[in-house]
């Protein structure tokens, strides 16, 4: 798993600008993950699980701080840190944390299965990044430390799943796997749909809008800034949307 992606990871992590940007993004993902977990702790009726989720959330807060501190340190060495974002958010599934998790809508089994798989994906991803970061020992140390925690999170979430849903654990994990696949497809479909719609609307813009734009500019020239009388729309009976 790690071996085949090593050239890609090496390329991604070689550029210090991209490295800094990814670390700052990871910090945001971890901070959001912490919020999701604190929320999960707030809604769970099981006191033992609440304590586990709380501890996990605190770890995520700590991870966010570690990523942020390292990302900032790297950024400060750059003459031009570049934009905050690359194309889209540029994150792959293992880097997305709990990715649009709606805690209240999940059963505890589904939530724990989802946490388990997310942490496993993150642990694998971080192990892979650690392997290509020989040239940046400080970043490697941060990632290695967090990867160790992610393994702990994998274990506790699996154990809690077995404790709270002994009969449904395997099924919950399979459903969570399928949901992650479905989400990956949806993300791809939406990116594709977004590209197609942008293309269509851009074509509409250039093919159709020019004469209307001329009219709009002509009408704008007639309007000086300043006060305008308010239009009385009270006669529309409140039904009018214009």
């Amino acid at each position: 798993m790690i071996r085949w992606r090593a050239p890609i990871d090496r390329m991604v992590w070689a550029d210090p600008r991209r490295r800094a940007r990814k670390l700052m993004q990871f910090a945001e993902v971890e901070a959001q993950g912490a919020r999701d977990l604190f929320r999960a702790a707030e809604v769970t009726p099981d006191p033992h699980l609440r304590r586990r989720l709380f501890a996990h959330a605190r770890d995520e807060v700590r991870h966010a701080a570690l990523f942020r501190a390292r990302g900032l340190a790297l950024r400060r060495t750059l003459a031009d840190p570049g934009p905050d974002r690359a194309l889209g958010d540029g994150l792959i599934p293992g880097e997305r944390g709990f990715d649009r998790l709606e805690v209240e809508k999940e059963s505890m089994a589904a939530l724990l299965a989802f946490i388990h798989l997310s942490e496993r994906a993150a642990a694998h991803a971080f192990a892979a990044y650690g392997a290509v970061l020989g040239h940046d020992p400080e970043t490697r140390a941060v990632i290695a430390r967090i990867a160790r925690d992610e393994e702990g999170h994998m274990r506790y979430s699996r154990a809690e799943l077995a404790r709270l849903a002994p009969d449904q654990g395997r099924r919950a994990l399979w459903i969570a796997r399928l949901r992650r696949l479905w989400r990956a497809y949806l993300r791809l479909a939406l990116i594709l749909a977004d590209l197609i719609s942008r293309l269509i609307l851009t074509l509409v813009y250039f093919l159709l809008l020019a004469p209307f734009a001329w009219m709009a500019k002509r009408s704008a020239r007639r309007q000086a800034p300043g006060w305008r009388a308010c239009v009385d729309r009270s006669r529309d009976g409140g039904g009018g949307q214009y």
């Binding site: 479909a189 749909a193 719609s197």
Partner: peptide, 16 residues
């Protein structure tokens, strides 16, 4: 667009 959003899995095909 709204119809496409209703079946987000099929959105790219509807756009196509």
């Amino acid at each position: 667009l709204t119809l496409a959003a209703g079946v987000e899995a099929l959105a790219p095909f509807i756009y196509s």
